[in-house]
Every structure is written in structure tokens, then in C-alpha cells.
Design a protein around this nucleic acid. Sequence first.
DNA 1: CCAATGCCTTGATTTCGGTCAAAGCCTCTT
DNA 2: AAGAGGCTTTGACCGAAATCAAGGCATTGG
Lengths: 242, 242
Amino acid sequence: MTVRQDVHSAGIPVLCQSCEARHRGVCGALDPDQLVALSKTSSRYTIEPGAELIGDAETVNSYSNVLSGVVKLTKGLSDGRQQIVGLQFAPDFLGRPFKVESEINAEAATAVSLCSFPKASIERMMRESPELEHRLLKQTLKELDEAREWMVTLGRKTASEKVASFLLMIARNIDPATDPATNSTSFDLPLTRADIADFLGLTIETVSRQLTRLRAEKVVRIENNRHVTVESLSRLERRSGA
Amino acid sequence: MTVRQDVHSAGIPVLCQSCEARHRGVCGALDPDQLVALSKTSSRYTIEPGAELIGDAETVNSYSNVLSGVVKLTKGLSDGRQQIVGLQFAPDFLGRPFKVESEINAEAATAVSLCSFPKASIERMMRESPELEHRLLKQTLKELDEAREWMVTLGRKTASEKVASFLLMIARNIDPATDPATNSTSFDLPLTRADIADFLGLTIETVSRQLTRLRAEKVVRIENNRHVTVESLSRLERRSGA
DNA sequence: CCAATGCCTTGATTTCGGTCAAAGCCTCTT
DNA sequence: AAGAGGCTTTGACCGAAATCAAGGCATTGG
């Protein structure tokens, strides 16, 4: 028993021992030796809500695991219109392999903590260990599925269906412990109304009106603008167009 | 000289010799031996416009390279609303690794020719050759970029910007030989108005009106409903919102 | 040659969501 | 406690795109 446990955590860097990315994230692809090597060049950051993740520290020359909080990926049009094209939750991986960063901006939507590595160490490890690249492919496929799901929402759903879809998506990502019996959940919205609007291709006002409507029709309760309680997820789901 | 050429095509299956997928597609990751092995289980299909790519032959139990034509990937809502979430051109790869097919349908938009392999052969080869998985990751990242670019179009562009963006995207994918000097191109639309509408999150009527407008303002010429000539790509680009 | 069918275009009208404007509500500071 | 600033809500009005409704134009087959 104890022996087993010793074997399991033997040589695993302290920092990594309780790290979610080691279980469900990309680091799960690495063996203890690789973890040790990687953790020597890794560093943890905490980022304030609203701060952009750019420059040497976070994106251009590094990769990161999201340890907590929510990062929004945005793309903008020249005249200032903006669209959120992805949300990254723990333990998602952040950073674009094989390429100078595309025209995507990353910004902390909430307080965010990251574990970052220099690009070079990850890329070296990817060459050594196909399993790492495999994980990356899997995460990329997951993101592609999400993006496509979102295209349906953006292109073909009404404003109220969009807002319901958004709440559903957040509920599923934020609160892993949804009670399947009661079918109810409760969580804090990680995004402002402006962010939600940028995510759904709507205006702030329309988002607000739809939330008001959902509240009036008892589909959700909202406290302090941010805290949302969903009594019946299936009811919300029915509102989402699906 | 001749020796070099002999070495290059030595052992490469006849079918593959002039295949675009061998150069720009995933097969480029394979060495001659692997190509031979793969080509033994591969088969070519031709598919009529409008036909769905399902069942044993094309998707569920196989992967394919698109050799010519355009495949549309669609997702639907329960009430019949539909959104095109991707277009695959030659030499794109078709089929979803590591997963039972998600809720995505594939349909030939034009006449399409495919080179298909059983899922098992590709997956075995992926285990042997990390380079293959690497190519797959690259194509998936490309598709993710395209999907995100599209999210901006769906969420934040006006109807006329959407139509201009669509024409631009087709021009870039269909006609690889755009004359950079004259800045003009000419191509056949691979999609009907209904498809374009499903791609852009619009109605048929709106697509038609916007095309009429672009034609009236001499941004494009349209013959026989399908053949489009763009005099100035940069002019079209300016219309696309970018 | 004439229907028939399937796209596509055009016009009239409606509607959903955007825009503009004002007020309400928290949180933080002083 | 009062004030300031940042979100958020609400209301009135407007406009872009959807909907509803004809008609046009090719291609196909009788």
C-alpha cells in the first residue's frame, strides 16, 4: 500500500504533486523524469482579471497550463468589434504550437493562475515523447469541437437561446459537481455582461434583457449580478435550442 | 538526375505518385514502405453532389483524403436549422481520430473524389510514425484557426461583410493561382445559395441580395449564377470587414 | 416545343435585436 | 456616510435581416 503510493509520487516535483494538469492536463503525458526536467524551467504566475497574456511571460515564448480561473481568447476587427473565440478553463493548455501566435489575444477573464514553461522545453519534450503530442492533439480536437458547437450558436440561435446556451456551457465547465439527482447547480459567472455579449455576438443590453427574462421565468436565480443558480439544468437545456 | 528521380519515386504506389495528398496532405508524413502498405487497403470513391458521407465507406470506419471537390461539414439543431461548420478542400483530411463521430455530418457540396482507408490502418500507422500524428495536429490546428476566424464572421460581421468574406475565402481556396499583379481571380462557387446561407448564418434571400449588391457595385461579376470573377481582391477584402 | 422542377432574384412587410439615453446598484475610497 | 466610477438594467425608438409572397431563368424530360 504505502509502497505503491511511494512509487507513484516518487520523484514527482512537489509543485506538480497536487496539480490538476498532471492528471487531466497535458502533463499527464510525462513520466517523473520529464516532470522534474520540465518543472525546473517552469514558473507559476497569478494574473489579475482584465490583464492580457502577452509578451515573454505568457504566450509568445511560452506555453502554460491554466491552474485556476478563466482565460478568454478574443479576435478583433479593425474597427473595434470583438468576438470571444474560446474560453480556457483549468486544466487547459494555453499557447500555440509550431507557429508564431496567430491573431488571437488572450486575456484573463477572472483572476487566473498559470504554470508556464519556455516554448523550447515543451517542444523538445514533444520530440522525445509522442504521448505529449498526442495529448495536445486531443485537446486541439476538443477545442475544435467546441468552436464548431459555438458556430451553430452564433449562426443559428436566437438571442435567448444563445444566453441559455452560454449559461449551460459555464455550468458544465465551472461546476464539476452538478448534482445529477436534483439536476440543479450554482456558480459564479466568470464573465461580465460585456464579455458575454462578445462571446455570443450580441450587445450588452440584449444579454441583460435575456437574463432578466430567464430570471422572470424562474429558469435561473441571479444574486449580485454574478451568482447564478440553475434549478433545473434540463429546463435550461430546453431553452438553449440544442 | 534520372537516378534522383528514380530514388524519389522508387516504391511509391502508382496511385500515390501524382496525388496531392502525398505532397501537401497527411500522406506526406509516410515513407515509401508505409505508402505501399496503406495503399493496399485504400480505395478511391467518387461522390455525387449532395450525397452524404456516412456509413462504412466514408466516415464511421474510415479516414479519407479529399482529392478534389468540396465537402461541407454541418451541424443541425433539432428543429431543422442548420449551420455549416467547415469546408474541406483537397488535400484536406477527413475523419475524426480517437472518437466515434461527433454530431457532425459530412456532405459533398460538389462532385468529390476521395481516397479512403480503414480506420485501423491509419491508427496503426499513427502509432508507428509520430510524424503522421504531427501532420494531423497541424491540420487540426489549421481547422481550429479557420473555425475561430469564422466565429468572428458569424458573430460580428454584417450580412454584406459576411458575403464578401465568404467569396474571399473561396477565392483563396479554390484558385491557388491568383495573379498577384492584376489582383484578380475567377472561380466557380462550389456552394448553392442555400449552402452559402447555412455557412454564413443568413437566409437565402439575404445572400442573394448581397450578391446582387456586390455585382451592382462592380466588386464582382457573376455569370450563370455560379461563375464569379473578382476584379480586385483587395477591394473585396475591404468589403469583408477584416 | 412545352411543361415541370429546382434554383435564384426581387419586392413588401414584419420582427428581433441594436442604438441611444437615462437611471439603478454595488463596491471602494475618503 | 457621502461620493465616484463601473457595471447593469430598463425604456423608447430604429433599422438590418427575416419572413412571406411572386416571378424569373435555366435545365430536364415528355
